[in-house]
């Protein structure tokens, strides 16, 4: 199990204890470094990467309880496994360590065999957690991954105000029929890279990709001061980036891309939907439907970006939006005034 070997930080104010623990850890095949109190330990943790901490409780400057609390409060450290090694007496102290997030408690003098077992199991758990985090970062957006880490996972929704942006490539099916499959995927990758950039640089998240279309959220899971303005700014950047891409495409004799985008603002229900085994951060509600309808309507109205009234009301220069009166959308009982940008 060479892959489970770790870099261990030993925190103890007593020299004999530090030397003995370091020896034990090294005999088990792990690397170790030492800090003589909690304050020094926190500095080391901020400067270097460790896989596990062996923590004493009774220490001057900053004791083990304070270290546990500080680790738990730091988002980038709080998954770090901590094994408390102490000769502190009293069940209440052990309970307090566990409540503060310690993975385990080993009484001193530490038994070598027990230490070995605890180290391997904690390091293995950490490895799995790290793996999970990497997967999560790849398949969910960074924001959703963070939200999951901070709030834990639970199926359920929240009602909140957000802006929803739908965007897709016009006639991509026809365009892709003339391209070799590799070129189609490459073009899609370039397109998605640009779109993700435009969305995330404006505080939004891409939460759905289907073929050549995507749905982005502004104001969920993280709130934004003005989601409508952020969504419109992202759409503007998307078109700017596609213009540049098209110049390159033209120069290379490759097909150009045309986009359509629809934005609606209002109440949505956002949260994790699915089963315990498989779920996604989703967003549903009338606002989502409207954004999709607006995007589809760009083809009919021959416009690049269509927004709803509430999105327009959120814009500082709302007069620039051109009103299109009384459009009827499937699923909406009343005709709506919409706006072109």
């Amino acid at each position: 199990m060479a892959e489970a070997l770790g870099h261990v930080l030993i925190v103890d104010d007593n020299k004999v204890n530090r030397l003995l623990l370091a020896r034990n850890v090294e005999l088990l095949g792990h690397r170790s470094e030492a800090a003589e109190n909690g304050k020094v330990a926190m500095e080391r943790l901020r400067a270097e990467t460790f896989d596990l901490i062996l923590l004493d409780i009774e220490m001057p400057e900053m004791d083990g309880f304070e270290v546990l609390a500080a680790i738990k409060a730091a988002p980038d450290l709080r998954d770090m496994p901590v094994i408390v090694t102490s000769s502190l007496e009293g069940l209440e102290n052990i309970v307090r360590c566990i409540e503060l997030g310690a993975e385990d408690y080993l009484p001193k003098p530490v038994n070598q065999v027990l230490l070995g077992a605890r180290l391997s199991s904690s390091l293995e758990k950490k490895r799995l957690r790290d793996e999970q985090k990497r997967l999560l970062d790849r398949f969910a957006t960074h924001e959703v991954a963070l939200d999951l880490q901070n709030s834990g996972f639970s199926i359920g929704g929240k009602r909140l105000t957000a802006s929803v942006l739908f965007c897709d490539i016009r006639d991509f099916t026809a365009l892709s029929e003339d391209l070799p499959p590799e070129a189609t995927i490459e073009l899609l990758n370039t397109y998605y890279t640009l779109m993700f950039d435009a969305v995330s640089s404006n505080g939004g998240i891409v939460n759905l990709m289907i073929g050549d279309g995507l749905m982005a959220l502004f104001g969920a899971p993280q709130p934004l001061a003005n989601p409508a303005q952020s969504a419109v700014a992202a759409a503007g950047e998307m078109f700017g980036m596609i213009t540049v891409l098209n110049q390159e495409q033209r120069a290379a004799g490759a097909p150009e891309i045309r986009l359509g985008a629809g934005i609606a603002t209002g109440e949505v229900v956002a949260g994790y939907a699915g089963t315990d085994d498989r779920a996604a951060y989703t967003c549903v509600g009338k606002t989502v439907n409207l954004a999709a309808r607006l995007e589809a309507h760009t083809k009919i109205a021959c416009r690049r970006i269509l927004i709803d009234e509430q999105t327009r009301n959120g814009l500082p220069d709302s007069a620039k939006a051109e009103k299109i009166e009384q459009v009827e959308f499937k699923g909406f009982s009343e005709a709506l005034d919409i706006f072109a940008l």
Partner: peptide
């Protein structure tokens, strides 16, 4: 208490 604790811990070792 801390000094006594350290001494105890090492003596046990």
């Amino acid at each position: 208490r801390r000094a006594a604790h350290s001494l105890k811990s090492n003596a046990n070792t």
